[in-house]
Structure formats: structure tokens, C-alpha cells
Design a protein around this nucleic acid. Structure first.
Length: 264
DNA sequence: ATGCCAGGCACAGCCTGA
């Protein structure tokens, strides 16, 4: 008897240090078994990526490391991601490891770690806005693709005041600035579907809880990890969620894995 | 207005994150 095909699970997780968080990563991969996992903030140079352990868990991997900061990876269960690009076009001198794009399980997946931008105003905020402008240009070609495309990662943008427990103390933060929000809205206006917001239109969903000020025990969260789907892929969106249990582990990352399920 | 926590590196106090 033909068994109904399991949906494809695509997840994004700002792991905040892949070496110190490796036990969490392996535990999460084993329990949730995402087909594709995009990681940000590896905080490890290329050679320090724990390739053997990830392979032993049944995942192929593509990654871009950098000393101390940034770093992104795409993991694929029982498969090897096929690299498409490892830089966001448009700024040759940009050395920060924040973008990786690959074909995985029949989908083009962009894994991104958008600059935080604090403090603002200042050069870091300028860099964030430039980076978002570059993303907007590149995304315009991806959204129109006849192939399924997902752009997922830590966007470092709280899209609206509904996406934060309380915006009051964050008003001056780069994550809430109108310039950041306008650019995120411009992405959606290109035709991208914000998966979590689409499936939970009236519910607050958080993906990040600051280490400071008891944010996790108080559920004082922010929604900054996003999974954007182009129209071809959005038709296949079936479910979405946040693996909050990972945030509750001892010595957790300040982000929780966030995922979508897509029809095969 | 600032520090609050946490990881990484120069392994000792910085810098960065969000």
C-alpha cells in the first residue's frame, strides 16, 4: 500500500557558537529530524566546523566559517547540499560570513545572517541597511524563479510591534527601526511569504529570548528568525513552528530552531 | 542612560551580540 509522503521539514537555527552548542545540535537533529537545517552564528573558523559529528548524525553539510563571529551552514539529511553561492552580491569588500545558498532536496535555499546593526545610528546600522538593500536586489531574482526558493535565517528584524513582547524598551534598537522594517516589508512586497505570520496571523510567535533580564522565564521574546518562501514554494506550505524545548535546555542559544513543513 | 548574560579569543579582560 502506498504510504503518504512525509512533508519536507526546513528549519533555521541561530546556534550561537557551534562548538559550545554541538550537543544541543545533535540532540535536536535526532529528535526533530529536519530535512534541511540552516545554521547561523557558527562562531568558528572553517577548519573548526564539526563535520565528522554532523556526518555521523546523517547529515551532509556546506558551511562558511569565520574567526570568532558570524558563520553560516546548510545541513541536509541523507544528502549533500549543492552550493550555488556563498556571498551576497553587491559589495566586494564585504568579508563577513553571512550568506550561503544551495540546492537541497529539490529546493533552492538561502541561509542568511543579517547584520544586527546596533548601535544605531552609526556605521553598523549603515552596514545593516546596505546589506538589506543588497538582499532586496538579489531576492528580486529569486522570488521570480520558477523553482521553489526559500530564504531563511536570522533577519535581525522585528517586523511589527506584534512580533515583540513589548516594544517600549526596544524603540531605539536597530531591530525595530523603521528603516529596517521598511526593507523587510519591501521583501514581502516582492512576493515572499512570511511562513510563520501566514500560518499564525493572530498569535504572537517568538524565536529569540535575550539572555538579559530573565527574558526566557518571562517569555519576553522577539520574532526575528524568518522563513520566507517564493510563490512557487509557498503553495506547498503545510505547517510551521518553533522548537522551544531547545531554548529551555541548560546553556541554550538565545534563539530557538524555527521550521516549516512543505509538501513534497 | 546603563547593565543585565553569554561565547570567543590575546585566556584576561575586552569585543560582540540583540
Amino acid at each position: 500500500m502506498p504510504r503518504k509522503k512525509q512533508p519536507l521539514r526546513l528549519a533555521t537555527f541561530n546556534i550561537n557558537g557551534i562548538r559550545s552548542r554541538l550537543p544541543h545540535l545533535l540532540q535536536w537533529l535526532e529528535r526533530e529530524r529536519p530535512d534541511i537545517a540552516c545554521l547561523q552564528e557558527l562562531k568558528a573558523r572553517h577548519e573548526a566546523f564539526p563535520r565528522a559529528e554532523i556526518e555521523a548524525a546523517g547529515y551532509g553539510a556546506l558551511w562558511q566559517g569565520q574567526v570568532s563571529w558570524n558563520g553560516v551552514a546548510i545541513l541536509a539529511r541523507d544528502s549533500e547540499p549543492v552550493e550555488s553561492r556563498r556571498r551576497l552580491p553587491g559589495e566586494r569588500e564585504d568579508e563577513q560570513a553571512r550568506y550561503l545558498e544551495a540546492a537541497v532536496h529539490g529546493i533552492m535555499v538561502a541561509c542568511l545572517y543579517l547584520p544586527n546593526g546596533n548601535p544605531q545610528p552609526g556605521p553598523k546600522f549603515d552596514y545593516k541597511l546596505r546589506w538589506m538593500d543588497r538582499l532586496l536586489r538579489h531576492a528580486r531574482s529569486l522570488v521570480a524563479s520558477e523553482h521553489p526558493v526559500a530564504m531563511v535565517g536570522d533577519y535581525n528584524v522585528v517586523p511589527t510591534d506584534f512580533d515583540i513582547y513589548n516594544p517600549r524598551s526596544w524603540r531605539k534598537d536597530a531591530l525595530l527601526q523603521p528603516e529596517s522594517r521598511e526593507r523587510y516589508a519591501a521583501l514581502l512586497a516582492q512576493g515572499w511569504t512570511d511562513s510563520l505570520r501566514t500560518l499564525f496571523p493572530d498569535e504572537q510567535v517568538f524565536t529569540f529570548w535575550d539572555y538579559f533580564r530573565d527574558h526566557w522565564p518571562r517569555n519576553a521574546g522577539l520574532r526575528i528568525d524568518h522563513l520566507l518562501l517564493n510563490p512557487v514554494l509557498a503553495k506547498r506550505l503545510k505547517a510551521a513552528g518553533v522548537d522551544r524545548w531547545v531554548r529551555g535546555l541548560p546553556k541554550a542559544s538565545d534563539h530557538a530552531p524555527t521550521w516549516v513543513e512543505l509538501a513534497r
